Amino acid sequence: MARTASLHINNMEQPTLVRVSLPTKITEPELARLTDHIVQNIVRPHTGCTCLSGRINVLIESVFQEAVQVEL
């Protein structure tokens, strides 16, 4: 099974919020691939360039992954 990260974009906030939920123990190549995707497919279309320029906040939730898992 492929590992995936979830990207949630909220354009209603100022600045725009991109919330990233990562699988546990993300590798450096996975993080680099994710960063490239965010810059090319979210930041560039939203700002017209590849800089965040204060218009987009990125929240990465990997640190909290263990704390929010609940077995049902």
Results as ranks from 00 to 15, higher is better:
residue 36 D to C: 05
residue 59 L to Y: 07
residue 36 D to S: 06
residue 40 Q to F: 09
residue 65 Q to Y: 04
residue 69 Q to W: 09
residue 46 H to K: 12
residue 43 V to P: 02
residue 38 I to A: 01
residue 63 V to R: 12
residue 51 C to Q: 00
residue 55 R to C: 13
residue 54 G to L: 11
residue 31 L to K: 11
residue 70 V to R: 10
residue 71 E to K: 14
residue 58 V to M: 07
residue 67 A to R: 09
residue 54 G to E: 15
residue 69 Q to H: 14
residue 42 I to G: 09
residue 33 R to P: 07
residue 36 D to Y: 08
residue 56 I to C: 07
residue 66 E to L: 13
residue 69 Q to E: 01
residue 37 H to L: 06
residue 61 E to Y: 01
residue 58 V to W: 02
residue 58 V to I: 10
residue 39 V to D: 04
residue 56 I to E: 06
residue 57 N to T: 07
residue 45 P to F: 00
residue 49 C to W: 10
residue 51 C to N: 00
residue 54 G to V: 05
residue 43 V to A: 02
residue 51 C to F: 05
residue 36 D to I: 08
residue 43 V to R: 01
residue 56 I to G: 00
residue 33 R to W: 08
residue 39 V to Q: 13
residue 58 V to P: 00
residue 37 H to C: 05
residue 35 T to H: 15
residue 68 V to W: 03
residue 55 R to H: 12
residue 55 R to V: 15
residue 56 I to M: 07
residue 65 Q to G: 02
residue 38 I to C: 02
residue 52 L to I: 08
residue 40 Q to H: 13
residue 41 N to D: 09
residue 48 G to E: 07
residue 39 V to S: 02
residue 35 T to L: 09
residue 59 L to D: 09
residue 57 N to D: 09
residue 65 Q to K: 12
residue 58 V to S: 04
residue 53 S to L: 02
